[in-house]
Design a protein around this nucleic acid. Structure first.
Lengths: 237, 237
DNA sequence: CGCGCCAAAATCGTATGCAATCTTTTCTCG
DNA sequence: CGAGAAAAGATTGCATACGATTTTGGCGCG
């Protein structure tokens, strides 16, 4: 899975920040696994693919490295992150700490409009689960994460929202690497239960369900170390 | 308070990442208020001051903008962030959610070495409080934040640690803007109480004390909006 | 056939140049 | 004298250039 094989939507309406656009597209590609962990992301290739100079490509990669989706090594370049089991545990520990609180905050701010948005979100999620094919699989992964991001946006704290964006994205990487069933969709019904609690303003229940949900996702992981922790990340790619 | 008036330690042993070094120095300057909120940070000036090209200065400013310490506007440049009351509330809401959990994690991982480090930290804090003069004031602000960062490092989760670094830094900005007593040192005895709970492995108490501590800091703020929310950030600087 | 060594190619880190945009100053006209 | 427009200056966004470092691809030798 080389980055050169990827195709990206033309870098559309472009008077605003192009580095940000590129970052978003690369993040999507990483999150829904079109780019495997360890893949080299060279400035030149990224620049060529998006038709910008290395300067801009580099800025986009720097952003992704702040989010922990990309690891950069001096004089060697950028690679799609390859989280270790320890990092994986930390990602989920962070989510266990933050997301129940987000659920509580969101429960107190739900409006009918929010409910509609959630229903649409869960519908889409269900549709992708029913479909077959790798494309549906990718969309399903994305939709599953989007549920959590929607929740974070309802909670109304932009700082926590950004933290969650990072954690959800990194979770996708972790699941790609360590997931047993390979898919995180196991949680669709749990998402529905959480929504129900939110709808009823039952913040305690929403919070508890969220905690269990995260535990279930993590329980699907196999975090035993295989080889040495690095070996230069299995030769990178 | 112009950036050109600032002096920075020579950009020392420098084969490794210079942008990162510059970011750290600028962050320190922002956190201990040598650079006031709203101050313009032009790429050229930063570059000249640290004796690097605009390319590197720009990268450092981009990093700070990710941390929320600097706000960048397209074609206008970078400014020390000027958090609104709403942002201020979000910073503290985030800390209330995260830091009690960090305290619990840290309580379970305290070693005698950690205790020594905390004691040294609190000593330093106390010394700066006793001293007079703006330099001691600055050191005091930094030391107060460092207590929280030390706690985060003991907790052993690098992701949460980074989140806390961001939140502590932004808190300093918020206190600079909205603090009544101007100083956050009010919490020195609270820090000592928290350490005591940590030392005894009393995680529940440490967590509760931390929550109260954050509440006390926030209670010292005056978050009433003064004028319109922006007016282009009071003409920037 | 495998292994180390050296040159060639690729890639990165950084400085610099240029056009576009924003800011400031100056000038004009009411 | 003040308001608005035009010009000059400063600053940013981005591309490109070049030395430094890393990777790759022989090539000889054991």
């Amino acid at each position: 899975m080389n980055i050169a094989d990827q195709t990206f939507p033309a870098v559309d309406s472009a008077n605003e920040d192009r580095a940000q656009t590129i970052r978003d597209q690369l993040r999507d590609a990483i999150v829904d696994r079109r780019l495997a962990p360890g893949t080299k992301l060279s400035e030149g290739e990224v620049g060529t693919l998006f038709d910008v100079s290395r300067t801009v490509a580099r800025a986009a990669l720097q952003m992704l490295s702040f989010e922990g989706l990309v690891r950069t090594e001096r004089n060697r370049g950028a690679f799609v992150a390859n989280p270790s089991p320890e990092e994986a545990r930390q990602v989920f520990a962070s989510r266990r700490l933050i997301e129940p609180g987000i659920a509580i905050a969101a429960a107190g701010r739900m409006t009918p409009a929010h409910v509609v948005a959630f229903k649409a979100q869960l519908d889409e999620e269900g549709r992708f689960i029913a479909e077959r094919g790798p494309n549906a699989r990718r969309s399903e992964i994305k939709a599953s994460g989007d549920f959590h991001l929607l929740l974070a946006s309802v909670a109304g704290n932009t700082i926590l929202q950004r933290f969650m964006e990072e954690l959800v994205a990194r979770s996708s990487l972790v699941i790609a690497l360590y997931g047993r069933s390979g898919i995180s969709s196991c949680g669709h019904s749990e998402h529905m239960n959480i929504l129900e609690a939110l709808e009823n303003g039952n913040s305690e229940r929403a919070s508890a369900l969220m905690l269990h949900h995260i535990d279930h996702i993590e329980a699907d992981l196999d975090l035993r170390v295989r080889s040495g922790p690095a070996l230069r990340q299995a030769l990178e790619s």
